Simulated scan of single mutants.
Amino acid sequence: MKGYLQLKSGDCFHGKWLTDAPNGEVKGEIVFFTGMTGYQEVLTDPSYKDQIIVFTYPLIGNYGINEVNFESEKPHVAGVIVYEAKQTAYHYEAKFTLVDYLQKWGIPMLGHIDTRAVVKKIRNDGSMPAVMTNQIMEKEQQIELLQDIKVSKVASLRPQSYGDGDHHIVLVDYGTKHSIIKSLVKRGCKVTVVPNGMSFDEIQHLKPDGILLSNGPGDPKDLMAELPTVKKLIRHYPTLGICLGHQLASLALGANTKKLTFGHRGANHPVTDLQSGRVFMTSQNHSYVVEQNSLKGTGLSVRFTNLHDQSIEGLEHNVYSLQTVQFHPEAHPGPGESDYIFDEFIETVKDNNGRVIAYA
């Protein structure tokens, strides 16, 4: 059955429904992911909440869906755009085909779309609202998206504990991925995942040795109410911020963020560690970055930069035990070259030895 992808720019792309056609329109911000693999992790990453994802690699789904690589309990994307998706799965761990998995959750997928043309449009005009539909829209019809705080749709509602290691890390959840929790547990940590919005006093009562500010969807400035608590946590505990957590830590200390034209989404983004001079590949998924010219007076200094556009990929503080990264060191999907970030964080936690220090 024919289906259509309509962009706010007015461009319309014809395709074929690979899942059942949706009842009515499916709207979302359209973005693209450049990895050749990793579609299972992308679909279940809460940071993609309500987005329509275009996979740039022409063949998606050939190794199916397994039961171990989920980043959350369900897919979060609004819809999927591909050139071709396999109706079968060729891997010994596969339990579902990609089509069957999306069908189960009611996520529509359009195939036979000219994904190269779609991506070129996004690169030129930026990420924008889009709609997947059964009929061509009238030119004058506007595509408007609901303005909501997406973190509230994906974050934990109550504390949960994982592992029983010697180092107690409280993970403030803005839409965390399972692999971040696993990365801490395998390094000898007990991890307590707490809802964002929990007060500093409530977190302090848990007696953490360190704090992790997680990834999550949306504009960090939608969470301005979180910043006083984030700043208190940074002043009292060794802290690691990942993706949205990196942006929130920066805002809390007086820096600013801005939206990129089309964001960074893929498993092949080169980053330089200015401390070691090392270049490595990273997995990324974000629309917003910290502005370089806003760091003056914050105590923050750049440690990591993106080699494609020289944007900030990570920060350190000259007083607080704070490290932040814009990329995903847990690397699901993506190369694992940056997981040493977790090792550095744990070493900082060990050096602090459970002390609670309030900086002036």
Results as ranks from 00 to 15, higher is better:
126 G>V: 13
95 K>G: 08
124 N>K: 15
99 V>L: 13
116 R>Q: 07
119 V>P: 00
94 A>C: 09
106 G>S: 10
98 L>D: 05
113 I>K: 00
128 M>I: 15
131 V>A: 13
111 G>M: 03
102 L>V: 01
107 I>T: 10
119 V>Q: 06
125 D>F: 09
105 W>G: 05
98 L>K: 01
119 V>G: 02
99 V>P: 04
100 D>H: 08
109 M>T: 04
110 L>Q: 03
99 V>R: 05
130 A>E: 06
127 S>M: 12
122 I>S: 07
130 A>F: 13
104 K>W: 12
93 E>A: 15
99 V>Y: 01
108 P>M: 04
129 P>F: 10
92 Y>V: 13
104 K>E: 14
120 K>T: 07
98 L>W: 03
112 H>L: 11
109 M>E: 02
99 V>I: 15
111 G>F: 00
102 L>W: 09
101 Y>R: 08
89 A>G: 06
113 I>L: 09
109 M>Q: 05
108 P>Q: 04
102 L>F: 13
106 G>N: 10
128 M>G: 00
98 L>A: 06
97 T>C: 03
122 I>P: 00
110 L>A: 02
115 T>I: 08
107 I>F: 05
92 Y>G: 00
130 A>R: 03
101 Y>M: 13
110 L>W: 02
129 P>Y: 11
106 G>F: 06
130 A>Q: 03
113 I>S: 01
96 F>C: 10
98 L>S: 03
97 T>W: 09
97 T>S: 10
123 R>E: 15
94 A>V: 11
109 M>W: 03
108 P>G: 01
101 Y>P: 01
108 P>S: 05
93 E>Y: 14
104 K>L: 09
120 K>V: 03
104 K>A: 06
106 G>T: 07
98 L>E: 08
118 V>W: 06
95 K>F: 06
107 I>L: 06
118 V>R: 08
121 K>A: 11
130 A>T: 09
125 D>M: 14
102 L>Q: 05
128 M>N: 00
120 K>I: 04
105 W>S: 04
110 L>F: 02
122 I>F: 05
128 M>E: 11
91 H>E: 12
105 W>N: 10
93 E>L: 14
117 A>T: 08
93 E>P: 00
132 M>R: 06
124 N>T: 14
132 M>N: 08
93 E>H: 12
110 L>N: 00
95 K>N: 07
90 Y>S: 12
115 T>P: 03
129 P>N: 15
94 A>K: 12
117 A>C: 05
94 A>L: 12
123 R>H: 10
119 V>K: 08
109 M>L: 14
111 G>N: 02
103 Q>L: 01
101 Y>S: 07
107 I>V: 11
116 R>N: 09
118 V>S: 02
105 W>F: 14
109 M>K: 05
92 Y>Q: 10
110 L>P: 01
128 M>Q: 15
90 Y>I: 12
115 T>C: 03
103 Q>C: 05
114 D>L: 07
108 P>T: 04
129 P>W: 09
113 I>F: 02
118 V>I: 15
116 R>G: 04
132 M>P: 11
101 Y>D: 04
114 D>R: 10
